Structure formats: C-alpha cells, structure tokens
Computed example of a mutant assay.
Amino acid sequence: MAARLSELPGLIPEIREYVMGTDAGVSPGAYDFVVVADFADLDAFRVYRDHPAHRTVADDLIAPITAERAVVQHER
C-alpha cells in the first residue's frame, strides 16, 4: 500500500507535498497509518481525490484493509 501511495506524486501533478508513514506508537488509540497531502487549492485536491490512480489505490488496496478512517481537509 505504501509503495503504491508513494507513486501518486509522480502521477498526479496537482500534489504539492505528500508525506506518509506508520504511527510512532507514542499515544494509545492512534491510527496505524497517515497520509498528509498539500494542494494549491480545493480544485487541485478534487483532481487528486478523483484521479484514477488514487481511486485504484484507495478502493483496491486501502478500503479492503481499513476498519476505520479519519479524513480532514482544511484551508490555510
């Protein structure tokens, strides 16, 4: 999953920054994995969200192994 996620910045030019990793195990109850992505604006995020390469990773690799997820979008 991480390997496929790491390919996305090379396939989706709207991604300005893309960081991911596993939980450091410091706080109980934390999620196992995080992806933090930065985009120029909401339109660029929507391109990423709907891009076929992202949809394939999200739908085929992440969804089947995910019991719970948290999603946050914010604007600076």
Rank of each mutant, 00 (worst) to 15 (best):
M1H: 13
M1K: 06
A3E: 13
S6A: 11
L8C: 11
L8N: 13
L8W: 09
G10F: 02
G10R: 12
L11R: 06
I12F: 04
I12N: 05
P13E: 14
P13C: 11
P13Q: 14
P13G: 14
E14N: 15
E14M: 10
I15A: 09
I15K: 09
R16Y: 04
Y18I: 04
Y18P: 03
V19P: 00
M20F: 07
G21C: 01
G21R: 01
T22E: 14
T22G: 09
A24M: 08
A24P: 00
G25Y: 02
G25V: 03
G25N: 04
G25W: 01
V26D: 07
S27F: 04
S27Q: 08
P28Q: 13
G29H: 04
A30M: 06
A30I: 01
Y31G: 12
D32N: 07
D32L: 00
F33W: 15
F33S: 13
V34R: 05
V35I: 14
A37K: 01
F39S: 07
F39G: 07
A40R: 10
A40E: 09
A40T: 07
D41W: 05
D41R: 05
L42M: 13
D43E: 14
D43Q: 08
A44W: 01
F45T: 06
F45E: 12
V47L: 02
V47K: 02
V47P: 02
Y48F: 13
Y48H: 12
Y48M: 12
Y48I: 09
R49F: 06
R49E: 14
R49G: 03
D50P: 00
D50V: 00
H51T: 12
H51A: 10
H51N: 11
A53Y: 08
T56G: 01
V57I: 11
V57D: 05
V57K: 10
V57E: 05
A58L: 12
A58G: 11
D59S: 10
D59M: 07
D60M: 06
D60C: 12
D60K: 15
D60P: 06
L61D: 15
L61F: 05
I62R: 11
I62N: 07
A63C: 03
A63Y: 01
A63S: 08
A63D: 11
P64F: 10
I65V: 05
T66D: 03
T66G: 03
T66R: 04
A67N: 08
E68M: 10
E68V: 08
R69V: 12
R69S: 13
V71E: 07
V71I: 13
V72P: 00
V72F: 03
V72C: 05
H74D: 06
H74P: 00
E75A: 13
E75H: 11
E75K: 12
E75V: 12
E75Y: 06
R76A: 13
